[in-house]
Design a protein around this nucleic acid. Structure first.
Lengths: 147, 147
DNA sequence: GAAGATTGATGGCTCAATCTTA
DNA sequence: TAAGATTGAGCCATCAATCTTC
């Protein structure tokens, strides 16, 4: 009979709207992976975030400014820098001209550790792009829509 | 001179591969919003997650099974259920036949609270879909690629 | 010994209150 | 008063160690 198949759909079958919670869950999985890999070089995502902000700046940053860069409250930075000082990656230094302010200064060890963390993140970024494959443009579109 | 403009590109200019960290950051923002809205009905995302798992099951669940459902370690569930008991939303009950096991049972208040939380999440899901607009299919594609 | 749950220590985050300096 | 930083309390997550029960 050679009955023709149903006409091919150009668009895929109408999917139900993708779930907000599914997106959040998928992001959590990605985060877990980043955390896990960073752990191998002695960093966490928040710690790497601080080092990355300091590296981008190139000079010491006030804790207040650091909080703004990494989008969190000041008291969080206080504790984060406490732990980074314990790790020997950052030092608290005085701010010239304002005795209220405290600067976070990267140590030589901190710069080295940041480089290692950045290498890890770069590798994960490449792997991520590979997994995305042809969906890279789709992700760019989603990020633009949510921005 | 009226020099003609460069030919229009059908595809947008080749974007650099979308950033892994940008995706994680965007998901964080969405999470913040969900947390904030759930807070108005006295819930957090983890607490809602537990109630939702119990509501989906319809019957009490062993803490161990609960940990599997919400993808976290058992000790986390122990504390989460502690707080949910303090809130009066869940009760610990004995598991018939295995004295090692502890069941989480939703209270009437818990069922009511879950309904309120679910209404909040449903509303946010609709808002999210609206913000996505034409990018809904793109997100579905991304989630499929990452799954 | 292994499974289920808990406890204690630690990291990371928030908010409210506090202390010092401007 | 206001700004910068810290402290204290609480929530959420992990891991390692422990306790009870199988």
């Amino acid at each position: 009979m050679n009955k023709p198949a149903a006409p091919a759909r150009i668009r895929p079958a109408p999917t139900q709207p993708p779930s907000l919670l599914a997106l959040v869950g998928a992001a959590h999985q990605l985060e877990q992976r980043i955390e896990s890999e960073l752990h191998n070089v002695g960093l966490s995502m928040p710690k790497f975030g601080v080092l990355d902000a300091l590296a981008a700046q190139g000079t010491p940053l006030a804790l207040s400014e650091l909080a703004a860069r990494i989008r969190c409250v000041r008291s969080n930075v206080t504790q984060l820098v406490d732990r980074l000082e314990d790790d020997g990656l950052v030092r608290r230094t005085a701010a010239p001209g304002d005795r209220r302010s405290v600067l976070a200064t990267m140590t030589a060890t901190g710069r080295q550790r940041h480089a290692e963390g950045a290498a890890v993140v770069d590798r994960l970024q490449r792997e991520f792009s590979n997994e995305l494959g042809d969906s890279r443009d789709a992700l760019a579109q989603v990020l633009a829509a949510l921005g």
